[in-house]
Nucleic acid binder design. Structure first.
Lengths: 346, 346
DNA sequence: CTGAAAGCGCTTACAG
DNA sequence: CTGAAAGCGCTTACAG
């Protein structure tokens, strides 16, 4: 592979001059420039990004550690992150934690070793010492979706409380009173918040959230199945199961189907995080949709701000309820009473 | 950030010695080793991977350029690739081409500039000059899923011909005679092969595949919708629409639903590539399942073989038909006649 | 405008 | 077993 030396020799100039034309430095004669460019072309020369990074101490690379690539929510997040990063001149390296703190730390360590310019994380747990160290050491960092409490790092996320209230209003209007939730891990902020938001919304209707109706999931499909089976085995099973993410509702559907039960006649289902397939499931699933693409882009902008020495603020965007048929058919009257929940999808 | 010099100073040895203990070089005294390790610990030192790569000309990194991250098939492929790579001591950087040749080349160039040790590609088009150059220059490369004809690069993919024959047998047994396909881009091997396999299988039943029944899609949902609308507008619409990937069948479902038609009563649907949601769509979708995880792992093994100087062979794994209800309810008799198509899902 | 030289943080023959 | 030194491919003051 041709190096800058080869180009310099071919063009009859010094490597310094080659470097200058490559970096658009103003003080290069037109003649030198054309000769260098010709040499670059002739040799098919491409600067070695590794060497450049070592010298400049910049990799123009962002690290993104997400909780689970197989979750369509995070896939979309990763896609929008890469898009925005590319627009701003950065590449991104994705690490998939698979909801495992050890894997998360593996990727954070790897990314740090590669001297990425900044780190975007959706933490799988509440307090990785490794990440705390990185923050202390001054690594530019931004949390997306999930965050670590008490750490001075900007957070870009969505607030689902209003949407959860809309959901509970919708369920209550449909006559449901026994509502259960498949929670995410308590070690994650989203795992906690969604339960808290659900509980608060229930309280507003004088409804209780008994412990038996809080199933401990891990944001992955299998846990949704397991928890739902537990709910169905209860002496008094819930009328509604709200899954804290889209993968766990898949598991819940599996469990319900395995018992030969029907949704929503025998049990209602709803989920946090909307995906295109929810329109076509049997029945279409009522879900809370996050502005995922916007979150990814905002997170990148915040991180690049930090990298370039500015001081970005945290960003919170609202989530919204998308009503479909998995909780029961709303009567026309209900729709009129609570129009906010009656969003149509385009 | 502490460098090797700081560690050397702290331990009272030379940087050479530090380097030796870090790389498990045998000739280091026990005393020096413990002092270095203590210094590493005290300073929280981590070797700079950029510097190491520059020096050793190895990045221990694989590049993976996939056609579309939002396609669950490729997401799963990416996940298995990363898993196997990690097991073999490599990291992977993913580039998402979004089915765009220009974006694909952008990522290939970026990856090459970063001096990745090897490249795994599922090409979006038939012949990127950039990739051809890279092959000629000796970059270790392996194609996954799709490949470029006439290029001396190992290919790891699955052969769907038998499964497509099973599908056509299934459809024919159900009484369907007018079968249409939503094809992928002709510039991709999978785009061509799936049409060819479908046509061949139809011929075995004396059925024709008229041009009007071949819709040109691009492997993304929107094209599935557009093509399906075209099919439905035909004077004699097909009885079955077979989508060459899972995203296009989503679009097809959208189109069918928008017309208020029912699957499979009004029109039957099937897809290449199976995903967990197909079990729960309305109706559950009959699909051809690839051994995706196995493909990803085999591709990594082949690439690492090449990187380490061995000469891996191409790998072809069979796909299989998974019958569900989107093509019509098979009668018991049909099932008995053609048991190979009657796979149950676990 | 241009080049010689230093240096980024490592690894690795080479001598001892 | 250990250290001094060269060198990977760049960029960038510094002199001219």
């Amino acid at each position: 592979m041709a190096s800058i030396k080869d180009v310099a020799a071919e063009a009859g100039v010094s490597v310094a001059t080659v470097s200058r034309v490559l970096n658009d430095h103003p003080s290069v004669s037109a003649d030198a420039r054309t000769r260098v460019l010709a040499a670059v072309e002739a040799l098919g020369y491409r600067p070695n990004a590794v060497a450049r990074s070592l010298r400049t101490d910049q990799t123009h690379t962002l690290g993104l550690v997400i909780s689970d690539v197989m979750n369509p929510y995070f896939t979309e997040l990763a896609r929008s992150v890469e898009e925005e990063a590319r627009a701003l001149g950065y590449s991104v390296i994705i690490g998939n934690a698979d909801e495992r703190p050890d894997l998360q730390d593996h990727h954070v360590r790897n990314l740090l070793d590669r001297r990425i310019d900044g780190l975007l994380v959706s933490p799988t747990d509440g307090g990785s010492p490794l990440m705390l160290d990185a923050v202390r050491a001054g690594t530019p960092m931004v949390f997306v979706d999930r965050w670590m409490p008490g750490v001075a790092v900007p957070v870009v996320r969505s607030d689902g409380r209003a949407a959860v209230r809309d959901l509970v209003a919708h369920l209550h209007g449909l006559g449901h009173r026994r509502l259960a939730i498949i929670a995410g891990p308590a070690a994650t902020t989203t795992g906690q918040e969604r339960v808290a938001a659900f509980r608060e919304a229930l309280q507003a209707y004088g409804l209780d959230l008994p412990d038996a109706y809080i199933g401990q999931g891990d944001f992955q499909a299998e846990s949704g199945r397991r928890v739902t089976e537990g709910f169905l085995d209860l002496p008094e099973p819930p009328e509604v199961v709200f899954a804290a993410d889209n993968l766990m509702v898949l598991g819940a559907l599996d469990a319900v189907r395995a018992r030969g039960m029907r949704v929503p006649q025998d049990i209602a289902l709803a989920a946090f995080d909307d995906i295109p397939w929810f329109v076509h499931t049997d029945p279409p699933i009522t879900a809370i949709a996050q502005p995922t693409g916007e979150l990814g882009r905002a997170a990148v902008r915040a991180l690049v701000d930090r990298i370039e020495g500015r001081h970005p603020e945290s960003v919170t965007l609202p989530a919204r309820l998308v009503v479909r048929r998995s909780c029961g058919e709303p009567s026309p009257r209900n729709v009129a009473v609570n129009p906010v929940t009656n969003r149509s999808e385009s």
